[in-house]
Design a protein around this nucleic acid. Structure first.
Lengths: 179, 179
DNA sequence: AGCTTTATGTAGCGATCGCTACAAGGCCTG
DNA sequence: CAGGCCTTGTAGCGATCGCTACATAAAGCT
């Protein structure tokens, strides 16, 4: 049996699935290659070095997240700001998106540690989310621009609290927000 | 020259300084030991295994952070909620506390990945901050309990945005908050 | 057909990892 | 002073790490 020819494009989906389950910051080539049905040797061949693999994965995962987000987020605007936050928190908690959350905090941690690749990825993800929020603020909101930024900050704070097992704090915060 | 006798207590400060600079999640024994003037052999001896070292460091760093926070945070209550947030963000950006932020996101990432030790450490840190906030809400605040939770969520969201280089979003969010 | 390019396997290198076996020195207690 | 305990050094084990050298089979091009 001749070995199946593979390219970056055929390898990325399987590798993405692997890092969504096992993390990306400390991923090592041999398990990653095995998950994609190839060898570390070939990952180096296709991506140059480990950094090239991680870069490609970050880019691929960002696109994957974006399309998943588009599909999950509600199209019609909510009644008010609090409802907007609530809907997004519900939707991003869907099974299709939760694996991305684990990855997200790895990206944030690497950004905080000074990794430029991760920081750029993180900043652009925040830009993406902010753009969506600005376009979907409640009708008649007095300050959609500032409001979207406020909601994004609240959403991310809530998600962090959820990640450390203190979703109760985020829930109470939301209850106290504008009411 | 006889080797200096060392115990957990004498080792922890130097090790803490090392992880504040280099991170804790992926720290390895040999560099850590070198930073503390000892050997990996002795770290295992004093702490049992690597997990024991990390556990002890997390506990020690939590106390260190707590005392640093007490010293940095303003005693008197602020005029309003926004001012409260602003002050805390300013103070936690002080040089004495910034190294902890890098560590913080590592703790969050490990929590999100399911590490129970890190999650407990993170949850208790959030409890600590929440307690301080509840005790220092502006005078006459209509809902100090819910308000403190709201402010904590905002603060953490702001700090995350700062970590990924989008402090501008957090600044605009704060400007749009109650005003 | 022959030559080149592309894609792959096998094997291994030097480094680092957590951890352990063994020996020995220093201290305390009898 | 003798014996045991606490602490440390040295050396190394087996595993994993990113990456490379070398050979080769397949595919395409002239």
């Amino acid at each position: 049996m001749s070995p199946a020819r593979m390219s970056r494009e055929t390898l990325l989906p399987a590798m993405a699935a692997h890092v969504l389950e096992n993390g990306i910051a400390g991923v090592s080539l041999r398990p990653l290659a095995k998950a994609a049905g190839t060898s570390d040797r070939m990952l180096i061949y296709h991506f140059g070095n480990r950094q090239g693999v991680v870069d490609a994965l970050l880019e691929y995962l960002a696109k994957l997240y974006e399309t998943g987000l588009d599909a999950a987020l509600p199209a019609e605007p909510a009644r008010d700001r609090r409802e907007t936050v609530r809907r997004i928190l519900e939707r991003t908690a869907s099974p299709a998106l939760t694996p991305f959350m684990r990855l997200w905090w790895e990206v944030v941690a690497a950004s905080a540690a000074g990794d430029e690749t991760f920081r750029e990825s993180a900043a652009s993800t925040m830009g993406l989310l902010l753009g969506w929020l600005e376009a979907h603020m409640p009708e008649g909101d007095p300050d959609p621009r500032g409001g979207a930024r406020l909601l994004l900050t609240l959403i991310e704070g809530s998600q962090m609290l959820g990640a450390v097992g203190r979703a109760d704090i985020a829930e109470a915060a939301l209850a106290a927000f504008e009411g």
